[in-house]
Design a protein around this nucleic acid. Structure first.
Length: 580
RNA sequence: GUCCCCGUAGCUCAAUUGGAUAGAGCGUCGGCCUCCGGAGCCGAAGGUUACAGGUUCGAAUCCUGUCGGGGAUACCA
């Protein structure tokens, strides 16, 4: 159980006694890690808001709470400060005991949640007919990290990649295939040729209404079951899937299910009939619309020409997921421009009776270029995901090479090792840069920033990890046997104490991630952890520490730090390297 | 027009969801290498949190208004 949870359990009976069960829970939420180490390790802030209810000065309330608490085994005597803050400082022995338990635990002292929930996470969802690009990074990386954190905490997670495999983009490719196909190019590189056709038709549509209409007609024929279009679709899909699978392989992302829009196609007519029958949907301006209270625009579920829309598919998808997976929550990791769509979707889902499920749009901002506009190449094209990964790896290679050259004992890595490390560091840096952002903000993309060895970057975190591992190599110490040796962590200095406390708060950081589905809570934690480690490491010798018990204690602290960094990065979908 | 998001150090971003003196990195300035990886560490300067009101013990955070930026807004997804 986390320190925070332990403290809450101690406060609970006192607060229940004071203000009743319901208000006590609210008050317990006001126990927090201290914002400033001068105030101790944790602080309880409930005395101030309870002023009105209890009709006493907050400081008096704080004193009364302290008087009824028995925290002697956990904390130094609590202090009341300022307007009524209760400052708590943990006993060194408590920290040491918990650290020793964590050091020997594969979960690093993080207990699984007591109440496991079932999550369905919908993320990535590229349109498969066109190459993946920079716009897919955020959904893919954030969704993957959320799945990993939720699973680690003991929740049941189903990931589903809701591919765009049935939309207008296929009409474009079908039209292009029929009019502009380069047969030789298609034979040699089907994907490249399909991508070319997509771009070509895309540009034609903008200036030629007749072509735009013809493209929609191709799409409609595909949906209507036209045998030629279906055959071509069957031919295109494996090509497209092979490509995105290659990308996911490189990113280390895996889905439990890949049920694209096409999967739901047969379910749409029945769903729409039901919406009409139940009176939820009605004709408006030739289309079929569901009107919502307080909403200016309705949600359209069928076009004038009879074609269905993505709202229709999304509704069918909600129903399928509810019937198949029975989730407690469905998370949609989709950019913020679609917030109105999800507002509509969730409202209609409630009207269909899906009231016992959390429906959350985990929205995120746009990746911008230096100019503050959405990130593009110099030529103004959308940046392809593959070239983005290649460039990140290439630049990581330069960083790794320069770093290796400057090692005190000379270079240690072969060209092959450098290449392998560059792949891990480059892709890790790319992911980390995205996850370290508050997901709701737009952010400015910069290779230089993401690969910097300073600051809150993936490269810095991987470097911190490699440095710790290097201590063990240099000292000839095997971490596994150290853990089993019976050696114990002791907290001799302020730096060790600060590091130790941070290590024990790993689980609390993960809890923070889940509260609002914000992976940057974890990157912040890891950056802070690395900072406390380097402060400790600069000031105190590890390998040369005496007596031997102190040396062992510090080695254990190093090891637990490394393991926590490794586990934390792993929960972000990022690998570590032992040397770099 | 309406709705949503945003505006924080010169730059890029945080801020435990209403808590104490708003923090990091980059950049600037000043210290620290006989020593476990110096691409490091320690310190300083830099802020009226766009602006004006309000709510309360307490506001970057909540409410109202103004200004500025972005997004969405009926048959793309």
């Amino acid at each position: 159980m986390s320190i925070l949870q332990t403290l809450k359990d101690r406060f609970r009976p006192v607060l229940v006694d004071l203000v009743g069960t319901e208000d006590a829970e609210k008050a317990l939420d006001l126990i927090r890690p201290a914002q400033d180490a001068r105030f101790g390790d944790y602080q309880a802030n409930m005395a101030m808001p309870l002023k009105k209810q209890l009709r006493k000065p907050p400081r008096e309330i704080a004193s009364e709470i302290i008087g009824r608490l028995n925290l002697d085994d956990l904390c130094e005597p609590p202090e009341v400060a300022g307007p009524g803050f209760i400052n708590l400082r943990l006993r060194e022995s408590v920290l040491a005991d918990r650290l020793n338990a964590a050091a020997g635990d594969s979960r690093l002292g993080v207990a699984p949640v007591s109440q496991s929930r079932s999550y369905l996470v919908d993320y990535s969802a590229p349109n498969v007919a066109k190459p993946m690009h920079v716009g897919h990074i955020r959904s893919t990386v954030i969704g993957d990290a959320l799945c990993r954190v939720l699973r680690f905490l003991g929740h049941q997670v189903t990931s589903d990649n809701h591919l765009g495999d049935w939309g207008t983009q296929f009409g474009m490719i079908l039209y292009g295939y029929k009019h502009f196909l380069d047969t030789d190019a298609y034979a040699k590189d089907p994907l490249g040729e399909l991508a070319r056709l997509y771009r070509h038709v895309r540009s034609l549509m903008d200036n030629d209404e007749a072509i735009a209409k013809a493209v929609l007609a191709e799409t409609a024929q595909l949906h209507a079951g036209d045998s030629e279009n279906r055959r071509l679709w069957q031919e295109f899909i494996p090509v497209c899937l092979a490509e995105i699978d290659r990308m996911y392989g490189r990113l280390g992302v895996h889905f439990d299910h890949t049920l694209g829009e096409s999967y739901y196609h047969d379910r749409l007519p029945g769903l729409v009939d039901e919406l009409i029958a139940s009176g939820l949907a009605r004709r408006s301006e030739g289309a079929l619309a569901v009107f919502l209270d307080g909403q200016e625009t309705p949600m359209l579920v069928q076009k004038q020409d009879g074609a269905f829309l993505y709202a229709t598919t999304d509704l069918a998808t909600v129903r399928y997921r509810m019937e198949t997976f029975h989730p407690d929550a469905i998370l949609y990791v989709v950019d913020h421009r679609q917030s109105l769509h999800f507002k509509h979707l969730f409202a209609v889902a409630r009207m269909l009776g899906y009231n016992n499920v959390e429906l959350t749009h985990v929205s995120f901002g746009t990746v911008l270029g230096d100019d503050g506009r959405p990130f593009r190449t110099r030529e103004g094209d959308i940046v392809g995901l593959e070239s983005l990964l290649d460039e990140a790896v290439r630049r990581a290679g330069e960083v790794v090479a320069a770093n290796d050259e400057s090692k005190p004992g000379g270079p240690e890595l072969s060209p092959e090792e450098r290449q392998r490390i560059a792949e891990t560091v480059g892709i890790g840096a790319l992911k980390y840069a995205d996850l370290a952002q508050n997901r709701t903000s737009d952010y400015v993309f910069s290779f230089d920033k993401m690969l910097a060895m300073n600051g809150n970057t993936g490269t810095y975190m991987q470097y911190a990890y490699a440095r710790i591992r290097s201590i063990f190599r240099k000292g000839g110490v095997d971490p596994a046997s150290l853990r089993g040796s019976g050696a114990a962590i002791q907290l001799e200095t302020p730096e060790e104490r600060a590091l130790g406390l941070q290590l024990l708060q790993f689980g609390e950081a993960l809890d923070q991630v889940v509260v609002d589905y914000r992976p940057n809570q974890l990157t912040s934690y890891l950056f802070d952890l690395a900072g406390r480690f380097t402060t400790f490491y600069e000031k105190h010798s590890v390998l040369k520490a005496e007596p031997d018990s102190l040396r062992q204690s510090r080695l254990l602290l190093c090891d637990l730090t490394a393991e926590t960094i490794k586990q934390g990065l792993s929960l972000l979908g990022i690998d570590v390297v032992e040397q770099m």
